[in-house]
Amino acid sequence: MPFSRRLAPYLLVLPGGLWLAVFFVVPVAMMASLSLQTGNLIDGFRQTFHWQNYTDGLGTYGDTFVRSLWYGLLATILCIALAYPAAYWIAFRAGRRKSSYLLLLLIPYFVSFVLRTVAWKLVLTDNGPVLGPLRDHGIVPSDFHVLDTTTAVVAGLTYTYLPFMVLPVYVALERLDPRLIEAAHDLHADRTAAFARVVLPLSLPGVFAGVVMTFVPASADYVNAEILGGPRNTMIGNVIQAQYFDDGAYPVASALSFTLMAILLAGIFLYARALGTRGILDTPTP
């Protein structure tokens, strides 16, 4: 029937649309409103369009914003460095065992990431199984720490978001027609040139997707800084979390959340513009 056929797309989109409306659009709208209110938990909040929540937030926590983005960037770069060779090896050298190796890589991520991060803390603590013996034998100085350092937080972030880089890069490389590499060799490209001129450019869309999927959550993460970091490693996620749950400063927390969202969106937008839509849309086809 033409009527039901015209209706069908809307019916199909309805469940997902409703879900998004109820659990995304409504909360975001509420938060937007909250971010412009004043008051406290005891007296209640009133809509006062108090834009100072934003300027105050940015003024007070500017350095935390910068640190969050810096950590996110470092973690993203480390993720590329670790994920690309692994994805390359699985896509081109693993033969029939591709899925097995991919699964091996992902198995740790079946464990809750809070639990994994706590496990890191247990392993890397000052007198733990790694640092304890090293200190006892004088291999590292007795005041050597791993926890409470930038290194620990960035390493934790890298570890947490690694699969989000591996998977898109793997997909891009796996879809690459190996005959293109043969064609490159045939046209007098040695292995380095074949990689630089053919494999790398054709896998960039995967790297781009990986960067977005790693950088955004890594910059907004608070668990790694909370568990592995110290007072000097606070990320904006920790601030928002503390404002909400410890101080009950809902308007300031909401304003900080929106500021972070705006910064990340702007970053992604500029990044996409710089790379060009061609880079994103040009995926290798056989």
């Binding site: 027609d177 043969e182 490159a184 046209l187 074949a194 054709l202 040009d282 086809t285």
Partner: peptide
């Protein structure tokens, strides 16, 4: 190795580089 042999191949599937223009495809070698 193939890249040092003085022969070139026209592939069955063409294997043209999708990210390069016609000019750059031809100029590759």
């Amino acid at each position: 190795p193939a890249h040092r042999r003085d022969v070139n191949t026209v592939f069955q599937s063409y294997a043209l580089f999708p990210h390069l223009s016609v000019f750059e495809n031809v100029a590759f070698g």
